[in-house]
Amino acid sequence: MLSPAPSRAPSYAAVLRTRHASRTFGSALLGRLSYGMVSLSLTLAMKDTTGSYSVAGVVMALFGATSVFLSPARAALIDRYGPRRALPPMAGGYAALLAALAYATWRPGASSLLLGVLAVTAGGCTPPLGPVMRTLWSSLVPERELLQRAYSLDGVAEELLFVTGPLMVGLVMRFSVPAAGVAISAALVLVGALALVSSPAVRGIGATPSTQESSGSQETPHKQWLLGIVGLRHAAMVAAAVGLCLGALDLLVVAFTEQHHQGAAVAWVLAALSAGSAVGGLAYGAVSWRASNRVRLPVPAVGLGLTMAVAGLSPDVYVLVAVVAAAGAFVAPALTTAYLVADGSVGEGSRTQAGAWVNTAVNAGSSVGAAAVGLLVDRLPPAACFAVAAVRRPPRPVV
């Protein structure tokens, strides 16, 4: 059954034809392309300047930890003061620190301690462009069906950015050193963030502290810990489960392909995952669902888990590629629904934080999945590891 038609015909074209949508979305994507490039660029630059994979790994772990786990705090500043006041200082500080890292890693011999301090500080300043854009989508296209398509389009575009980013790093390295990729990442995030806040769609976004405090809404962060809100907590748990599967999958694919003496096939398997996610996200967003987002929330996550379990039974790499592509078809729908539930569970003044909590849950789940499978992959056959990753549930959030 289809839901009632919104005021505009629900389509991806209608989303992009919405006033100011294309300009705002394009600006956000330009800045978010930085995130698709920076991890690989920075890892390679760290390794080149220190000559140590261990140092590069530790520094990148610190960078990732501060970026992910401080995301809700940065989002709270966006909600409190609005993107136009809070985003430029974050983007400026982040870009300046990335530029400092690029300078420090351009030649061999940089101090590991200096690199660690710069990376930790940069991670703490990472501007939450994804959550900000999803908050803006809620203002640009408030109709339920158009918002679903907007979030699906956003998720698919983000998936493609994380495919395009490493390809751009490879292109940069043909002509320069990895540190150049770090410098380009700094420029992208600064230009994208400034273009985003200059959009008319950003005007008026972000309630003042006094407005939030006087609203009396139970979703206001001053009144209630956000993860105490049932809908947001469920969305974060599903996102963590998806992240756990994805974090486990990367290592499991390496183990599977090496066991079958086709290590080079890893790239094809992971490309199939991204392609499946893009197709699944666009198809999911195009359907007018009658069931509510909360009812649909666990369905794609369960589909991802079941397909992951089947992937471990693949007889060869070719079948694995096909099954992983099918698994990918559940990824974007699961995350899109989680973001929609999170957005609908909180008040207008907390939407950026809600999206940031979903982001944090995905990344935390991914880290747990990678760590857990890393302990199991040498002790169990790949098929058993796939099954464990498929059924393992993330810990219940502390509220």
Rank of each mutant, 00 (worst) to 15 (best):
S185C: 09
R134K: 10
I205Y: 00
Q148H: 14
L101C: 00
S139V: 13
L167Q: 14
S214M: 15
F162I: 12
P127H: 13
Y103P: 10
P131I: 08
V189N: 13
L167F: 05
L136W: 04
V202F: 01
E158S: 15
R174V: 11
T126L: 14
A195T: 09
M168A: 14
S176T: 08
L153H: 04
A96K: 01
T220E: 15
M168F: 15
L147H: 09
D154S: 10
I184H: 01
L136D: 00
V182K: 01
Q212C: 07
Y94S: 12
V156F: 04
S217C: 14
V197C: 02
S152M: 07
V182E: 05
Q218G: 15
L196N: 00
Q148G: 14
P209Q: 11
A207K: 13
E143P: 04
L129R: 09
L136I: 00
A102C: 05
S111E: 05
T164V: 15
P131K: 13
G204E: 03
S176L: 01
I205V: 12
G216F: 00
S138C: 02
L113V: 15
E159A: 08
P142V: 06
P200K: 01
F162A: 08
E143F: 01
L129P: 08
G206Y: 04
W137Y: 13
E159M: 05
V197E: 06
L118D: 05
A150F: 04
V132T: 12
V156N: 08
T135Y: 01
I184K: 06
V120H: 05
S185I: 02
T121D: 07
L98W: 12
V189R: 09
E219Q: 12
L98A: 00
L196G: 03
L194N: 10
P108T: 04
A183W: 03
V141P: 03
Y151Q: 13
G124P: 13
S210F: 06
Y94H: 14
